[in-house]
Design a protein around this nucleic acid. Structure first.
Lengths: 193, 193
DNA sequence: GCCTGAATTAGACACTTGATATCATATGAC
DNA sequence: GTCATATGATATCAAGTGTCTAATTCAGGC
């Protein structure tokens, strides 16, 4: 079920020791990224938190950005799979509720990724994957350019979800689905004249 | 001791040499930020591009972030003054057109700030100032929380403007005003039932 | 249970960069 | 011209990245 990182460089041995190393690094980064952006996290403190030697980091990742990208890309793929139905289904509100339910269910993870120092990377990767998806499955004609629609929708989604998970007394997933639908989904539809 | 010559706030020197230094640094940063984010710009390369000594940078700005913040805060204040009318006027579309006309008129500046490495700082500062503005002039009750409305609107505005200025064959300001109004302004209004 | 190769460890190392300090020089206001 | 002030040029420190080497550990096949 878990999508493994698709970092090409390492041979088939990625099931042994180095897999555990990478998992430890990912979890350590996830814990650190909650409080500060990547630039303020040193590789030394990251490896210390993961219980891994400093030099080992560079045998698994080329630089500091590579690990964050790995982590973010995997999780975004899951989120994107729940985002696509918003626009290919007839009942968009139901799909939006499913999306919110999932985010709420894993709110610890998404709070870390969205409200912490990975927010920028999240939006960038989300948009990148969403634009790739659009090319595969082109939507019908619309009153606004398709890539603008994608960029706006993703940016709005990230913004609203971030606000939600940052809030100390957060509204229910049901209410948030209403907000998302009204702000980031419905406005993209063809205006009926 | 004349009040006029040594006006409070900035020392009398801000009309002389150091003013020219700061202007040179701002323009150099503006040129460099087009291609890469602030983290990848070294102060040594910045001062070289500005034609000033390395140490001089720190006599004018506390650290690396200060210059970018200075630059961004000034321009954002101008943009925000044109953003507020979108929500306090009856004819929001007319205000949106004025906003777009201004951005188009100064498109070189805004292309540098929005499509380059300052995009993140732009959004952050735009939202920060907009939230301050909201506290001074509280809007009426709405179906969604005021701070979420501000965050979403600013994020959407930045996203759409960025797309516009990145585009090689950009639509007219008039058309973009229509898009902005439909995506980032109207959806926030009270739904009529 | 042992062997073998791949991965990790630990430490030192060169290099880049942010930020500070010092002193001589140049500039602009009066 | 004088004088306060800003700048130029340079040295320096601290911190962090990325590389390298040799010794060590570990997983899995025999």
């Amino acid at each position: 079920m878990t999508l493994l990182s698709t970092t090409g460089g390492t041979p088939a041995s990625s099931r042994g020791k180095s897999r555990r190393t990478r998992m430890a690094l990912r979890e350590a980064l996830l814990a650190l990224i909650v409080e500060k952006p990547l630039e303020q996290i040193t590789i030394r403190e990251l490896t210390a938190a993961a219980g891994v030697a400093y030099a080992t980091y560079f045998r698994n990742y080329a630089d500091k950005e590579a690990l964050l990208h790995d982590l973010v890309a995997d999780e975004v793929a899951t989120l994107l799979a729940l985002t696509v139905p918003l626009f290919v289904t007839v009942d968009s509100l139901a799909s939006t509720r499913a999306l919110c339910a999932y985010v709420w269910e894993r709110r610890d993870l998404w709070r870390a990724l969205l409200t912490g120092g990975a927010a920028g990377a999240m939006k960038t990767e989300y948009q990148r994957q969403a634009l790739l998806m659009r090319e595969k499955q082109p939507l019908g004609e619309s009153w606004l350019p398709a890539d603008l629609a994608v960029s706006f929708c993703v940016a709005g989604l990230v913004e609203i979800l971030t606000w939600w998970l940052k809030h100390e007394d957060p509204p229910s997933a049901h209410d948030m689905a209403e907000v998302i639908n009204r702000l980031a989904v419905m406005p993209l539809m063809q205006p009926d004249e």
